[in-house]
Design a protein around this nucleic acid. Structure first.
Lengths: 219, 219
DNA sequence: GAATGTATGTTGAATTTTCGACAAAAAGGT
DNA sequence: ACCTTTTTGTCGAAAATTCAACATACATTC
């Protein structure tokens, strides 16, 4: 039925739940498969926050626009990741962010209440799923925390270095690819794009950084 | 036995769990009561992140210091609130923050694994507690999100106004008390203290703000 | 391969923050 | 009431960001 079993069984939401139970779980959640083109809006700011999504293919970006049209990129979700679960589980009415597809994306959507209201079928793995969701939510919170730590630095230089050091740490080596173009990186770090470019050049001249396009190397 | 039943039964961790079950639950969690003086460290950055705390009396502050001694105030927890649960539930090894008592504080501590590893007594409300914890964690995440939105503004003025507008919204009126002194507010907003004082004065002169000490009024 | 559009790097002027220093005001202790 | 300590407000110089404008590099399309 579903083309994405391989992806789904690796999703943290279904951790410790055998693949053989996946069909039952998807039925229990009443998931709907949706396709989005690059740039399309998956959830719009202000919508009711009841839906949770799982990325099957592609990638989505969680972002926000202020009065003046300045974009803030909060986070991203790629294959197997959940999105929207924080807002749905917190029980707020309206989404404070938008979710935008950054590539052609397939996603599975379902209503959060399917998880939190104990399911009528009393399916065996429902319990495990709530525990998985707890861990996912906590880890998402940790991500927000890490971003806050980065943008808490006062200067463009310090924000950039904090970001690059984290990327290097996650990659496990000093060479890594940054998943943003310059404008998006500026929107993630909350700095000016041209100032960011200037700072990258400066770090390059100082011999601290090597980079071509999105390939970075810390020295 | 415990002096804080009134507080605990109102804690979101024990929502939907009758007071008559509280003693059993506390036993199941193996909670330990601890007292901290004002300024004392409850958890230190770098410690193993396995403990969860509940504030019974007083207040704690979640904060971080960088290399240069600049403090960042991430959040606060007061009577009935949990702290540390995000890091414990995310399953990370070391705490990325410190928890400091801002007043004389009593707290109940317990190990996160008491919640996540199903309890040997199979106590009836364990399930409800995990669900409560999921909601708490999601709401905590939302708080982080709100702070990120505030500090994503570029100028001291915009950060301050965004913060004050949120406080007014939460208070439900234009007069409210800010729970920080000037230095702490600056550390929460990620701005310079003297610049913050200057900006408050400016807003006052412009007739946008009235304030005496920690009493603010938006006009 | 020429043309078009987008992304990136560079620069200078205006604005804002930062930092240190200091004075005034408030709080705390004896 | 006095002294001490902490908090808060103010100021000016140095540093950094922002903003707009422009040049160059890169991609895509026809």
């Amino acid at each position: 039925m579903n083309l994405y079993y391989d992806t789904l069984k690796q999703s943290p939401l279904f951790a410790q739940i055998g693949q053989e139970n996946l069909t039952a779980m998807l039925g229990c959640l009443n998931t709907r498969e949706k396709h989005y083109q690059k740039g399309e809006t998956v959830f719009a700011e202000g919508e009711p926050a009841t839906q949770i999504g799982i990325v099957c293919k592609g990638e989505v970006q969680i972002e926000r626009m202020d009065y003046y049209g300045n974009r803030t990129i909060v986070s991203r979700a790629s294959r197997g990741d959940l999105f929207g679960e924080t807002f749905a589980c917190a029980g707020i009415e309206q989404l404070p962010v938008s979710v935008i597809a950054t590539e052609d994306t397939d996603a599975l959507l379902f209503d959060c209440r399917r998880i939190t209201q104990s399911c009528c079928n009393a399916c065996a793995f429902h319990q495990q799923m709530i525990y998985n969701l707890l861990k996912i939510t906590a880890q998402k919170s940790l991500r927000l925390h890490q971003r806050a730590e980065i943008i808490s630095h006062r200067t463009t230089r310090d924000k950039l270095l904090a970001y690059l050091e984290r990327q290097a740490k996650e990659a496990g080596k000093n060479r890594f690819t940054v998943p943003f173009d310059r404008q998006a990186l500026a929107d993630y770090l909350e700095v000016d794009r041209s100032g960011l470019s200037a700072e990258i050049s400066k770090l390059r001249r100082e011999g601290i950084l090597r980079c071509t396009k999105s390939e970075f190397e810390l020295l």
